[in-house]
Design a protein around this nucleic acid. Structure first.
Length: 330
DNA sequence: AGCGAGCCCTGCGCGC
DNA sequence: TGCGCGCAGGGCTCGC
């Protein structure tokens, strides 16, 4: 989603905002009028991600001299290979957009929850269950529509202050900025982040008095891993979901981290995991990773490694899928 | 600290 | 065919 949004939102001006359901602003500190007022007319500077949170920094508008100075962001190479934007006929050789100085102090923050989608459309296209809509004017691509769709409304949009992330590394993927939305500051880096610190993670993991899957799903320890990718990485590393972290050896923990990265990389390469039309990219296309699952959702089916049946346990009010033969507590 | 329960929601598939 | 139930990719708060 980040990769798909980046070329469409960078340099775009928010022409109008429509909130169809205020419940999607649960994490916005203020009424919908506030969200609309602050966003309307704003220029989006890019698309940045940490774990499952995405944010679009807003160019400062009330800082004298901040607009139109300095940075030129190249949009050459548009569109992203996996992205088909609504206006493919717009073709400019090596287009570029002059952006304000990247000193944004606010951002639009998005989380998809369980059932959220962000769909890039032309100005005529509606999507069922659209909760919030942004009409964008992009300097190269022209008029666009961003539909935030969410069946269960566990996801959200909000405007949040950008605060220092605490170290001198980029706060997320997609920007060099060290600023992070306040509501995302407690979220750990994800294992694909170049600034992810393996040693720091392994030390914190070893110091926890819990079990491994619970730790993997703890977004303040490591982010970006949900129920599917936890089960898949544990299967690949042959580790039982209820293995105590205190007895998980460092070599096995390191091997698990390797498998987490492999699973996340492959899933991103295949566009994510789609069981239905719920999980789609910005064009509404489904990912293919569901065809690559070895454990998740495969209870009763043969383990691809040993042929014995995969089992599903109730765990943390969710399912834990594993092979009782390959994955044992030890 | 860690953990379980509960909550925020809708829609789908299944069994009866 | 129709209904009720269980289930679903997440994250947060609360009380123990």
């Amino acid at each position: 989603m980040r990769a798909g949004l980046e070329p469409a939102v960078t340099g775009a001006v928010v022409a109008s905002v429509t909130v169809f359901d205020e419940r999607s602003l649960r994490r916005h500190d203020g009424p919908s009028e506030d969200f609309i007022d602050r966003l309307t007319g704003a220029t989006l500077e890019g698309a940045v991600r940490r774990g499952k949170f995405l944010w679009l920094p807003l160019a400062d508008t009330d800082v004298v001299g901040s607009r139109g100075t300095g940075v030129t962001q190249s949009l050459a190479g548009l569109p992203h290979p996996s992205v088909r934007l609504p206006h493919p006929s717009v073709h400019l050789p090596h287009p570029s957009v002059h952006l304000p100085h990247p000193s944004a102090h606010e951002a639009v923050v998005l989380h998809l929850g369980m059932s959220g989608q962000v769909l890039l459309r032309d100005r005529r296209t509606d999507d069922a269950l659209t909760r919030i809509r942004l009409e964008l004017d992009h300097p190269v691509l022209g008029p666009l529509r961003l539909n935030f769709v969410d069946q269960r409304i566990f996801g959200s949009m909000s405007i949040d202050a950008l605060v220092p992330s605490g170290d001198d590394r980029a706060a997320g993927l997609g920007s060099d900025s060290r600023l992070i939305p306040a509501q995302v500051a407690h979220i750990a880096r994800d294992p694909l982040d170049p600034a992810f610190d393996d040693r720091h993670f392994l030390a914190r993991l070893a110091g926890k008095n819990t079990t491994i899957k619970r730790a993997m799903l703890d977004q303040t320890l490591v982010s970006g891993i949900g129920n599917i990718y936890a089960d898949e990485a544990l299967w690949a590393a042959r580790i039982h979901y209820d293995q105590p972290t205190t007895t998980l050896s460092r070599p096995r923990a390191k091997a698990l981290l390797v498998e987490v990265r492999a699973v996340l990389s492959r899933a991103l390469g295949e566009g994510g995991t789609s069981f239905d039309a719920q999980y789609v990219n910005v064009n509404g296309a489904s990912g293919y990773f569901s065809h690559s699952l070895n454990a998740y959702g495969r209870q009763g089916a043969a383990c691809p490694r040993c042929g014995r049946p995969i089992v599903r346990d109730q765990f943390m009010n969710r399912g834990a899928h594993y092979c009782p033969y390959c994955q044992r507590v030890r």
